[in-house]
Structures are given as C-alpha cells and as structure tokens.
Design a protein around this nucleic acid. Structure first.
Length: 420
DNA sequence: CAGAAGGAGTTAG
DNA sequence: CTAACTCCTTCTG
C-alpha cells in the first residue's frame, strides 16, 4: 500500500509553519553525505508511531560530481539553502548543531565535512537501535544497544566519537582514516588523552591510561585494534547520524610532538574545543547537552572477537570505500530505499539542481531568496510529479491540492515498509 | 621511549 | 554487585 505524500515545506511561504514542523518532526533527519564520486542526501525518517519499531532510510542519489571539498561545501550550501527557513523558534538548527557537538552552525556550513545531520530539535536524540549500523557482519547493527550510560558520564568511546565530529579536534588531534570502516587514528594521542582527562576531571590522565580503557573496549566489542598501526582503532559500530569530518582544510593534523609547543594544556584545550566558548563551557556542554541530544547506545558485549588480522584487512582505504559495510547510510543507488514511483520527484530533481554547480553557486548561504529560487526551479518539476502521480498510484494523497498549491510545495513521500 | 597488552585495583551507580 | 574505568607492570620495536 502506498502512503500519501506529506507536505513538509511550503515554498510559497518560504518557511515551515508550526503545523508543518510537526509534520517535519516525522522526518527528523536530513543527512548530506559525501561518498566517492557521488553525493547522497538522506532523509532518515522516524515515521510517527512507527518510530519505535521501524525506521526508514531514504537515499536520494544525486548526480555524481567531481570529488572535492569545494563540491562538498557547495552541497552543504545547497543543503543549507534547502533548509534555510524561518523556523528558528521551532527547528532551532543552530541549537541543534551546537548540541550535536559542532561549535556553530556557521562552522558546519563552511566546513568541508562530508556529512551533516540536520534534524528537528530533540529527534536526533531518539536514535533507535536500527540507526546504529554495525561494521561487523557477525554483529547486526540492530543488536547494538544494551547499556545505558551511567549518570551523566560520557563514555570514552562516546567522547572519541564526539571528538571525531568536532572540527576543532578532527582531524587535528583525532581523525578518521577509514570512516566507512569506523577506523580512526589518534593523531595526537597526548592531546586526546588530555582532553579526556579534562572531561573526566582527571588531570593526570595520559595516553597510557586512556589506552588501557580503549583496550578494555576490545572485550566489550566496542573497539577493535587495527593491527600494525599505532594509535589506530576501529569502532565496531557507528550511529548512522555520525558527522564525518575529513581532513580537508578544516584543520591541520598535529602530531604528538607538536602538542607541547603551546606549553599550556588549558590553552590547548580551549583552543582545541572551541574558539567561541570557554573550555569550561564546552566541557559542561559535553557533559549535559549531549546527554539528551545524543542518545548513544553502546554496543553489546562482544560475543566473538574479530581477529586482528580481520581488522587489519580493513585498514584505511581513504578512497576505496566499501558501500556494503555501511549500507544503512551508504546504500548503493541501485539499492535505494526510495522507489522511483514513491520518490518525491521534486526532491530528487531539486537535489540534482542543487548539485548543479552553476546553480548552487547562485545560492547564497542562509539566503531565503535562494530557497525561493529553488522553489521556482521546483515549480516545473512539480508539474512532472503531478503527471507522474497520475501514471502511478503513488502520491494519491497529494491530489487534494491544486496544481498551484503543489507548485509551491515540497512533498516528502514516506517509503513503503516493504522496502526496508 | 612510546605504544601495546593485560592483571589487578578503584569508583560510581 | 557490576560496568567502566584507572593503575601498574611487562613486553616490544
């Protein structure tokens, strides 16, 4: 049975209304993600009452473009334009970003990150188990939750994940060497340990101590050691809404021996964590905000250890990704969860439009006019969607609206549950 | 000497 | 009591 398309954004008014935001909350996450030679925009939808049992990942494959940070950034600009809306009272994007460890919205928009998660406030925190994807075939992602965080303590693995999502730290002190495989490297182990110690209020923390904690995770199935590579570890599973920051130009890596040149740990931490906030504020943020926003569920206790050899087999391949390893997010286009007839054609076309560099360049970040331009571009596409709807059963629900209304609206069609 | 491994002790919920 | 560290010793390159 086909589900009705739902209005999620009205271009005529150029913003979400409160009621529309309520609708949008059923489609909480929009993820712009870069994979080699293609860009994906993912709607990660928790569908209303089904949110506890099912999640829907819709992938819209965008026309491949030349890889590069410029394109990535423009994708983000496009996404920003797409999401730029007068709904700060209800969506509070910047608030969400800050709560998702990122220093500021502007950082997100201007940085060559490879994935950005945008969601209605509070929804990202509702990461259910199916939004974890295992990096091990023998442990399905669906099993990757069993423990609750104790109190307000941020676990080390969570802390590292957050560092990996913090442009101030990644890739300067910690970086992904193979995000697809969950492999990361402690570029500056001392700095990371110091940050961890600061977070734990353990000024004597060092890498030796932190390293033991990391090794402790081997038995728990949270981490694997990447054989033969010092300071390189592998997450056994990752949340699908991870924000992946690649090397890019968002910060230079800093080797261990660079760390002491400042000669000031506090200065390091301040500068590392945030240039906008004091380190104390940031630490408070880490300890509290993310508590609610990022409901990370730690993996189950490991039942079968992955051999170091197997882990080594997944050694970093920055350019040779393995789509199958993270099919939840990086599902190949051929396996897209969006069926063509259910696909919000407008959205697909819109994304292609946004991906078109010429047009993207015309978009001004944070410019509402750009959204309207997009809406204009979509107008004709809506016509095509309407034509498509008459040819298929998809989107019957949209037909209660006039063509004029549809011309100015963006519909998101829920996927069929059969294509999970 | 840094990093890795792992036994044993500690702490918080 | 247990999870999640932290301390400590030993080993390796």
């Amino acid at each position: 049975m086909l589900q009705q398309p739902e209005l999620i954004f009205d271009f005529a008014s150029d913003h979400f209304s409160s009621s529309q935001m309520g609708m949008f909350s059923d489609y909480p996450a929009v993820v712009v993600e870069e994979v080699p030679h293609q860009h994906l925009l993912t709607y990660t939808g928790l569908m209303g009452e089904q949110s506890q049992t099912e999640d829907h990942h819709e992938l819209l494959k965008v026309e491949p473009c030349e890889s590069g940070e410029e394109e990535t950034m423009e994708t983000l600009v496009a996404a920003d334009s797409l999401l730029d809306m007068d709904c700060v009272d209800t969506l509070s994007l910047e608030q969400h970003y800050s709560q998702a460890f990122l220093p500021s919205l502007s950082d997100v928009i201007t940085a060559p990150v490879t994935q950005v998660t945008v969601s209605a406030e509070g929804v990202v925190g509702a990461v259910d188990q199916s939004q974890w994807h295992s990096l091990h075939k023998e442990r399905p992602a669906a099993q990757l939750q069993s423990r609750k965080r104790r109190g307000n303590t941020l676990y080390l693995w969570q802390f590292l994940m957050e560092l990996l999502q913090d442009r101030q730290v990644c890739p300067r002190y910690i970086k992904w060497t193979d995000p697809q495989a969950g492999i990361f490297k402690l570029v500056n182990s001392k700095a990371v340990a110091r940050l961890w110690g600061k977070h734990k209020n353990k000024p004597d923390m060092n890498y030796e101590t932190m390293g033991r904690a990391l090794r402790y995770y081997y038995q728990r199935g949270i981490l694997n050691k990447v054989e033969g590579q010092r300071l390189v570890y592998q997450f056994t599973s990752l949340p699908v809404n991870m924000v992946y920051i690649t090397d890019g130009d968002c910060g230079k890596e800093e080797e261990d021996d660079d760390i002491d040149k400042s000669g000031n740990d506090e200065g390091l931490s301040d500068g590392t964590i945030s240039s906008d906030q004091s380190a104390e504020d940031e630490e408070a943020d880490e300890g509290e905000e993310e508590e609610d926003e990022e409901d990370f569920q730690p993996p189950l206790k490991k039942t079968s250890l992955v051999s170091p050899r197997a882990a080594a087999a997944q050694r970093p391949r920055p350019t040779a990704k393995q789509p199958a390893q993270r099919d939840t997010v990086l599902r190949p286009a051929s396996a897209s969860l969006i069926q063509e007839q259910h696909l919000p054609i407008v959205s697909a076309e819109m994304l292609r439009t946004l991906q078109n560099l010429q047009k993207v360049r015309s978009l001004q970040p944070a410019g509402q006019a750009s959204v309207f331009k997009t809406a204009q571009l979509l107008g004709s596409l809506c016509e095509r969607q309407a034509a498509s709807e008459t040819a298929t059963d998809a989107g019957k629900g949209a037909q209660h609206k006039s063509h004029a209304e549809r011309r100015n609206a963006l519909y998101l069609v829920p996927p069929t549950t059969s294509d999970q």
